[in-house]
Deep mutational scan, measured.
Amino acid sequence: MEVVDPQQLGMFTEGELMSVGMDTFIHRIDSTEVIYQPRRKRAKLIGKYLMGDLLGEGSYGKVKEVLDSETLCRRAVKILKKKKLRRIPNGEANVKKEIQLLRRLRHKNVIQLVDVLYNEEKQKMYMVMEYCVCGMQEMLDSVPEKRFPVCQAHGYFCQLIDGLEYLHSQGIVHKDIKPGNLLLTTGGTLKISDLGVAEALHPFAADDTCRTSQGSPAFQPPEIANGLDTFSGFKVDIWSAGVTLYNITTGLYPFEGDNIYKLFENIGKGSYAIPGDCGPPLSDLLKGMLEYEPAKRFSIRQIRQHSWFRKKHPPAEAPVPIPPSPDTKDRWRSMTVVPYLEDLHGADEDEDLFDIEDDIIYTQDFTVPGQVPEEEASHNGQRRGLPKAVCMNGTEAAQLSTKSRAEGRAPNPARKACSASSKIRRLSACKQQ
C-alpha cells in the first residue's frame, strides 16, 4: 500500500481520502468484538498479612480480608486513616479506646483483636480482627420478611446475652447493641463488635452510672431520649438488646419516626405494640426488656430465667442462610486472597510482582521504634555504632529488605517449588510478632 504524507491529507475531501486508502487503516468495530484482558491483581503485604478484597466500608474506614502468612488464618483488617478520623467527632479517641478494650477481652461471643499495625509515614492504622463471614443486618436484609425464624432468632439472642453478660462482668457498657454490630462466623457463632462508643466503668465505681451516649437513635432507651444527665449503663444495653430481639423476630421496630426528633419523642413516651403472632412468652420477655422505668427493666439474670429464653424451640421454618457475597455473588464466600496468593505462588519472584506497604510497620504502639547501633568497621576489626531503624520486634528492616532482594536475584530452581506461605513470609520485609 502506498504511504501517504499526513501533511497532504488536509487537502483532500472525505471521498478523496477514502480513495487514497484511509479506509485501510481506520476501522470501526462493535464493542462486543473487544476482548478485555482482566487487570492483574497485584499482591500487597502489610507486615506478614497478605491483603485481599474489600469486605465493607463504614464511617471510620474500610475493612478488607487478609491472610496471615505465618498461621494461614483468615483475618479481617480495619484500615483507618488518621486524616479521616480527625474529621469525625471523637474519632481518634474512640478508636484508641476500642483498641484498649479489645486487647483485654477474651470471649467467644466478643470479636477478638489479633494485631494492631501502624504506618507512621502514611498515617494509617490497621486493626487486624478475627474473620466473620457476614453481619446479622446483612442476613436480615437478604430476606423479604426482614426477620429470622424463632428457632434461629433464639439461638442468636442467647449468644448475644452470653457476650453481653461477659462485657458487663468486665465493667464495660457497649451502648450500641444492634444487628449491624453483631457479626457471624461460618459456624454460626455470634460476635459482638464495634466497641468504639463503649465505656469502661471505673474499677471502684459504686454502680453503672453513665453520662454520655453515642449509640444508634432507634435503639436508645427513654432515659436517653428524654435527655437525662445520668442513667444506668447496663440497663441501656438491656433495652438495646430488647429492641434487637423485637427486630429479628418481627422484622419491625418498636419505635419509629420520620426524623430523629419524632423518633425520640415516640421513644420518650414509651408506647409501642407487640405483634400478636409473637406469642405470650416472647411478648412477656419483650415487655420486661423494654420496660420504661430502668429500675423495673429486666436484668440479665431475669432474662436467663425467663421461660422463652430457657425453652427449646424446634425449627418450624427453614433458617435464613448466609447470603452470597454482594460484589462477586459467591454463595460460598470464598477467600478473596486466592488470586493474590496464586500471583505470588505461580509467578517468578520479581520485585515488580508484589507490593510491600512499607519497609517498617510499627505494631502494638503509636510511637516510632527505637534505634540500635549499626556496626561500623574500624582499624582493629571492631565496629562502632551508628543508628539503624528496627521493627518493634527488633528485626532490622533494611537488612531483611536487602537480603530479600538478593535472594530474589539468585538463580535457584529449587526455590520455585516452595509453598505459597513460605514465599509470602520471604517477601515480607518486616516480620511481626
Rank of each mutant, 00 (worst) to 15 (best):
D5N: 09
D5H: 07
Q7M: 01
Q8K: 04
L9A: 09
E14Y: 10
G15R: 11
E16L: 07
L17I: 04
M18I: 03
H27L: 10
R28W: 08
S31W: 05
S31T: 12
T32L: 08
E33S: 04
E33C: 07
E33D: 07
V34R: 04
Y36L: 06
Q37T: 15
P38E: 10
R39D: 08
R39C: 01
R39W: 08
K41H: 12
R42S: 06
A43L: 14
K44R: 07
L45F: 07
G52V: 07
L55S: 03
G56W: 00
K64S: 13
D68L: 02
S69K: 10
E70A: 11
T71E: 11
R75V: 09
A76R: 00
K82V: 05
K83Q: 02
L85Y: 01
N90A: 07
N90K: 00
E92Y: 10
A93V: 01
N94V: 03
V95C: 05
V95R: 06
K97L: 04
I99P: 01
L101P: 01
R103T: 10
R104S: 04
L105R: 03
K108L: 07
N109M: 03
Q112L: 07
V114L: 01
D115G: 02
L117V: 03
E120T: 11
E121Y: 10
E121S: 08
Q123F: 04
K124W: 01
Y126T: 00
C132S: 02
V133N: 08
M136A: 03
M136N: 00
Q137L: 09
Q137V: 09
E138K: 14
M139P: 01
M139E: 01
L140Y: 00
L140T: 01
D141A: 06
D141F: 13
V143Q: 04
V143F: 06
E145N: 12
K146I: 01
F148Q: 01
F148D: 00
P149M: 06
V150A: 01
A153F: 01
H154L: 01
G155A: 09
Y156F: 09
Q159P: 04
L160S: 02
G163E: 00
G163W: 05
H168L: 01
H168Y: 02
S169T: 09
G171N: 15
G171S: 11
V173P: 01
H174K: 01
H174T: 15
K175P: 00
D176E: 01
L182D: 01
L184M: 02
G187W: 15
G188D: 11
G188S: 06
G188L: 03
V197C: 13
E199C: 11
L201S: 04
L201M: 05
L201T: 08
L201V: 04
F204Y: 03
A206V: 02
C210L: 02
R211T: 08
T212Q: 15
S213Y: 10
Q214H: 11
G215I: 05
S216K: 00
F219P: 01
Q220H: 04
Q220T: 15
P222I: 07
E223C: 06
E223Y: 06
A225G: 06
N226A: 15
G227A: 01
L228M: 03
T230A: 04
F231R: 09
S232H: 10
K235Q: 14
V236L: 01
W239K: 01
W239D: 00
W239H: 01
T244W: 01
T244D: 00
L245R: 00
N247G: 04
N247Q: 08
I248L: 06
G251E: 02
G251W: 00
Y253C: 02
Y253G: 04
P254F: 02
F255W: 05
E256I: 06
D258A: 10
N259S: 10
N259H: 15
I260W: 08
Y261A: 09
K262M: 08
F264A: 08
E265G: 05
N266C: 05
N266R: 10
I267W: 04
G268V: 03
G268M: 02
G268H: 07
A273N: 10
G276W: 10
D277G: 08
D277N: 07
G279W: 06
G279M: 05
P280E: 15
P280V: 11
P281N: 15
S283C: 05
S283N: 11
S283L: 05
L285Q: 00
G288D: 00
M289C: 04
E291L: 04
E293W: 06
I300M: 05
R301F: 13
R304A: 12
Q305D: 10
F309I: 11
K312S: 09
H313C: 09
P314E: 13
P314Q: 08
P315H: 10
P315M: 14
A316P: 03
E317A: 13
E317Q: 08
P319G: 13
V320T: 14
I322L: 05
P323H: 11
P323Q: 02
P324I: 14
P324K: 03
S325I: 14
T328R: 13
K329G: 10
R333H: 06
M335W: 02
V337N: 13
P339N: 02
Y340L: 14
E342Q: 09
D350E: 09
D352Q: 04
L353A: 14
L353G: 13
L353N: 14
F354P: 11
F354H: 10
F354Y: 10
D355G: 15
D355P: 13
D355A: 05
E357I: 14
E357V: 10
I360N: 07
I361E: 13
I361T: 14
Y362W: 10
T363C: 10
T363W: 08
Q364T: 12
Q364Y: 13
Q364I: 09
F366D: 14
F366S: 14
Q371H: 07
V372T: 13
V372S: 12
E375K: 14
S378C: 11
S378L: 04
S378T: 11
G381M: 14
Q382I: 10
Q382V: 07
R384D: 08
G385E: 11
L386A: 14
V390Q: 15
V390W: 02
V390A: 13
M392Y: 06
N393T: 12
A397M: 15
A398C: 10
T402F: 08
T402P: 13
K403G: 12
S404T: 09
R405Y: 02
A406D: 11
E407M: 14
G408T: 15
A410V: 10
N412L: 15
N412F: 09
P413N: 15
A414C: 14
R415E: 12
A417S: 09
A417M: 12
K423E: 15
K423W: 12
K423Q: 03
R426G: 07
L427F: 10
Q432L: 13
